[in-house]
Amino acid sequence: MVYTERNTWVGLIVTAVMIPSYVIVILQRAAGGPLAAVDWFPIMLWTIGLSIAATIVLSILWGMFAGARDPKGATATDVRDRDIDRMGGRVEHSFLVIAGLGVIALCAIGADAFWIANAMFFGFAVSAFIGSIARIIAYRRGLV
């Protein structure tokens, strides 16, 4: 497995853990009450920070294990990796545009800041998740 594919897998795994964790914590804090009443901002910041830290740590650890097995191939990339990354980026951007339009719509109707912030947060998270899936599919099946 090449360097960029490993990092894509790490991002996918972290995102798959982060999204449900955030939802669970928010629902627990709401305790059956209105979600907009939850103090969501520190939870969101912690989730983002822990996701970044987990991605870095897992990438480094996985890279160390891969480097121990294949020192030359652990950090190698080629044109195919760049093409796959570009394609994944286009997929991510598509979902970010959709999330941005949703945020604009929420602002237009005067939604609470909780809903606006969470729409953007989930837009970023879902776009990263879908972009990672698109990259992994491209690594496994190739670019068309």
Rank of each mutant, 00 (worst) to 15 (best):
A53V: 11
T55R: 04
D85Q: 13
R80N: 10
I48N: 00
S94G: 15
I60R: 11
A117G: 10
R80E: 06
W62G: 07
A68C: 07
I52T: 03
G100M: 05
D78K: 01
S59V: 04
K72H: 12
G102E: 00
P71M: 01
F121T: 15
A117D: 08
G123R: 04
D83T: 07
G73H: 13
T75C: 08
R90P: 05
D112K: 09
I60L: 12
I56R: 00
S94V: 14
T47K: 01
A53I: 09
G123T: 05
A119M: 14
I109T: 11
D70G: 07
W46K: 05
V97T: 03
F114L: 06
G88Y: 06
C107P: 00
A76W: 08
G63Q: 06
G89M: 07
G63I: 00
S94F: 15
T55F: 08
I56D: 01
D70A: 09
D112C: 10
A76V: 08
A117V: 11
A108E: 09
D78M: 00
T55H: 03
A119S: 07
W115V: 08
D85C: 09
S59T: 03
V103W: 11
G100E: 01
W62M: 06
A119W: 15
W115H: 06
I84K: 05
I48Q: 00
S51N: 01
A117R: 12
R80Y: 09
W46C: 14
I104Q: 03
R82S: 14
W46R: 04
L61G: 05
I109F: 12
W46Q: 08
S59A: 06
W62F: 11
V57K: 02
A66R: 04
V103L: 08
I52W: 02
F114N: 06
G67Y: 13
G63M: 01
G63K: 04
T75F: 12
G88K: 02
F65D: 11
S94L: 15
V91E: 06
D81M: 03
V91D: 06
D81L: 02
I98T: 01
L45M: 14
L96P: 03
A53T: 10
I109P: 06
A99V: 00
A108I: 10
W115E: 04
M87T: 07
I109W: 13
G67R: 08
F121Y: 15
L106A: 05
A105F: 09
G88Q: 03
I56S: 02
I52A: 07
A74Y: 14
F114R: 04
W115I: 07
L61V: 13
F121L: 15
C107R: 12
G110E: 07
G49T: 06
D112L: 10
G110R: 02
R90V: 13
A105H: 02
I98D: 00
G67C: 06
E92F: 15
P71C: 00
A99C: 02
A108Q: 08
L45K: 04
F65C: 06
D85Y: 07
A54C: 04
M64P: 15
